[in-house]
Computed example of a mutant assay.
Amino acid sequence: MAIVELLNQDMKQAMKDKDKVTLGVIRMVKASMQNEAIKLQKDTLSEEQELNVLAKELKQRKDSLHEFKEAEREDLVSKLEDEINIIQAYMPEQLSDEELEEIVVQTIEEVQAQSKKDMGKVMSALMPKVKGKAEGSRVNQLVQKNLS
C-alpha cells in the first residue's frame, strides 16, 4: 500500500479518535508530499519520492529536537518526540548496526576503496542501498570507521 493511502487511512482514524497530535502530523506530512508533487509537476509521487519527503520531515524534527534540548525547552521536546514517533511509523524498518556495517563493508569492497579519499565513491554507491533505512550521519560514521 502506498504511503499516501496509509496516511489517508490513519488521518480518518485520528479524526474519529480525536487525536489532534497525530492528525496534525499527518496533515503536515501530506502537505509536504503535495508540495513536492507540485514542485516536480506530477500528480502522484513514487514510493521513493514519498520516502524522501518522510525522511526530510523526520530530519527537520530531529534537528529541531536537538536545538530544543540545548535550550532546555522540555515542553517542546516532548511534543517533537511524539511527532518523530508518528513519522517513523511510516518509514521502513531501520537497519541494525550489524546489517548496516555489513552493507558498508560490502560496498567498500565493490568500489575498491582504499582510503578516506574514496569516501565520495563509497557514499554515492551506498546511499541508494540504504535509502530510508539508515540515517546519512550513521552511514557516514561507519564508512569513515571502515576506511581508516
Rank of each mutant, 00 (worst) to 15 (best):
G24M: 09
T44V: 14
K145A: 01
V21E: 12
S148I: 01
Q144K: 15
A37E: 12
L65P: 15
F68P: 03
I86P: 00
V139P: 02
K62I: 10
N52S: 11
K56S: 07
E98G: 13
N85R: 14
I103T: 03
L126M: 09
Q144R: 14
K69C: 02
D97M: 14
S46C: 01
V77P: 10
L54K: 13
E74Q: 06
I86V: 08
K39M: 13
E36L: 08
L51W: 06
Q112I: 12
V77Y: 10
V111T: 08
A31D: 14
Q60A: 06
K133N: 07
T107H: 02
S115M: 01
N85S: 11
S78H: 14
L51H: 04
N146Y: 04
I84Y: 01
S64M: 06
L147P: 10
A14N: 02
Q106E: 11
F68N: 14
R73C: 03
V104Q: 02
V104C: 07
E102S: 13
M11D: 04
D10V: 00
A2H: 15
M119V: 10
Q41M: 15
N146K: 00
M11R: 08
A89C: 03
A71D: 13
L142R: 11
E135Y: 10
L126R: 06
E98L: 15
N146Q: 14
E74R: 15
D17S: 04
E110G: 02
S148D: 08
R73M: 08
M119Q: 08
V122K: 05
L7R: 05
L100C: 07
Q9I: 09
D10Y: 01
K79L: 14
S46F: 08
Q60G: 03
K129L: 00
E101I: 01
M33D: 02
K62Q: 13
E74K: 06
I26K: 13
E74W: 13
E109S: 14
K121T: 10
V143G: 03
R61G: 01
L95D: 01
E67Y: 02
Q88G: 07
K56E: 14
I108P: 05
V29G: 03
I26Y: 14
K131P: 00
M123I: 07
N35I: 04
E48T: 13
H66F: 11
V130I: 06
N8M: 07
